[in-house]
Amino acid sequence: MNGTLNGEASPAPAEVGLAAHPGQDLRRMPASAAARGLSGREWLILTKLIDGATNKSIANELGICEATVKVHLRTCFRKIGAKNRTQAAIWASEQFLS
């Protein structure tokens, strides 16, 4: 059920992107990523990995500390079954193709 905010209909869950995050990435979270339980912020960080961004550059772009990026990445790794950033980036890039 869609609610309203300031008189505007809020988007349906499938339409929710990453606009609420500073340094947003225009790539939407695929249903396969949502099904793994990834949050919007976790998906955003994974999309930065696809681009080859470092933890420090991700932190600077999103206005968070580098330790927070590391925590998000560890959580992502657990949720998607990746052992490292390379596997996570490959997994995320494959989600755009499916």
Score class of each variant (00 low, 15 high):
M1G: 09
G7Y: 03
G7H: 08
E8K: 13
E8C: 07
E8F: 12
A9G: 00
S10V: 13
A12T: 06
A12E: 09
A14S: 14
A14D: 14
A14Y: 08
V16G: 00
G17K: 10
A19M: 06
H21R: 08
P22R: 14
Q24E: 12
Q24K: 14
D25V: 15
L26Y: 04
L26P: 11
L26Q: 13
R27F: 02
R28T: 12
M29H: 02
M29S: 05
P30F: 06
A31W: 04
A31K: 06
S32C: 08
A33F: 02
A33I: 00
A33V: 03
A35Q: 13
A35C: 04
A35S: 13
R36Y: 01
L38W: 03
S39G: 08
S39Q: 04
G40T: 03
R41M: 07
E42V: 00
W43L: 04
W43T: 00
W43A: 03
L44W: 03
L44S: 07
L44Q: 11
I45D: 00
L46A: 12
L46N: 02
T47M: 04
T47L: 05
K48Q: 15
K48R: 15
L49Y: 09
I50G: 02
I50E: 15
I50Q: 08
I50K: 03
I50A: 02
D51Q: 14
G52I: 07
A53W: 12
T54P: 04
N55S: 11
K56V: 13
A59G: 10
A59Y: 02
A59N: 04
N60W: 02
E61N: 10
I64C: 04
A67P: 02
A67N: 14
V69L: 09
K70N: 14
K70W: 06
V71A: 12
V71D: 12
H72F: 12
H72V: 03
H72G: 07
R74S: 11
R74W: 06
C76F: 01
R78I: 04
K79E: 06
G81F: 10
A82E: 11
A82I: 12
K83T: 15
N84G: 09
Q87D: 14
A88Y: 04
A89D: 02
A89M: 06
I90K: 09
W91I: 05
W91H: 03
A92V: 05
S93L: 08
S93K: 12
E94T: 05
L97P: 00
L97C: 01
S98C: 01
